[in-house]
Simulated assay, not measured.
Amino acid sequence: MMGKNPAGFWIRLGANLIDAVVFAVLGFLLALILGDQIGQNASSGIQFLYGLLLPVFWYGYTVGKKAVSIRIVRKDGTNVTFWTMVKRSLLSGIVYGLPFFLGLIIALVMGWSEMVELFTTPVPADPAAMDMEISNTALSALVILFGGGLLSFILIAASAIMIGVREDKRAIHDLIAGTYVTRNSPGAASADSYEESKEIF
Rank of each mutant, 00 (worst) to 15 (best):
A191I: 12
E195Q: 14
I38A: 13
G149E: 10
I94T: 13
S113P: 00
E196I: 04
G35S: 07
A177N: 08
Y180W: 11
I70N: 10
M85A: 05
F82V: 09
M110Q: 07
N184W: 06
I11F: 02
A171Q: 05
S44W: 06
K75W: 05
F57W: 10
K198L: 15
V73R: 10
V22T: 15
G60T: 04
F57Y: 08
G187K: 14
F201K: 08
G77H: 11
F153A: 15
L90N: 07
A24P: 00
P186G: 10
I134C: 00
E117L: 09
K169T: 02
Q40A: 13
D19N: 12
V109F: 02
V123W: 09
A141L: 04
A24R: 09
V86K: 11
S152F: 06
Y59F: 04
T179Q: 12
I172D: 06
I161R: 05
D168P: 01
V63P: 00
I144L: 14
G39T: 07
Y96I: 01
F23P: 02
N41M: 14
S69R: 15
A129S: 15
T121R: 14
V165T: 08
L104W: 10
T62K: 05
Y61L: 02
R71E: 13
L139E: 03
T179N: 10
S190G: 12
P127A: 11
G45E: 06
D174F: 03
I154N: 06
K169Y: 00
I38S: 09
F28Y: 15
A141D: 04
L102F: 08
S193Y: 01
T121P: 05
S152M: 10
E117V: 02
G164T: 02
S159M: 01
A138N: 05
G51N: 13
L17H: 14
G77V: 08
N184D: 12
L155P: 05
F23G: 06
I46D: 03
I105T: 09
Q40P: 00
G149R: 12
F28M: 13
L34I: 07
N79Q: 15
V21K: 09
P124K: 14
I18Y: 10
D168L: 01
L118D: 01
V80Y: 03
L142K: 12
R74S: 06
I46G: 02
P124S: 14
L142I: 07
Y61A: 01
A7D: 02
F28L: 15
Q37M: 13
A141C: 04
V143P: 00
L52I: 05
M110S: 00
F9P: 03
G149Y: 15
M85S: 07
D131F: 04
Y194L: 08
G178E: 06
E196A: 06
L26K: 09
G27P: 06
N16Q: 15
G35V: 09
I46P: 00
G35Q: 09
F9Q: 03
I94A: 09
P122C: 09
K169E: 02
L29R: 11
A160S: 11
P99D: 12
V73E: 08
I106T: 11
L13F: 14
L53Q: 03
P99W: 10
D126L: 08
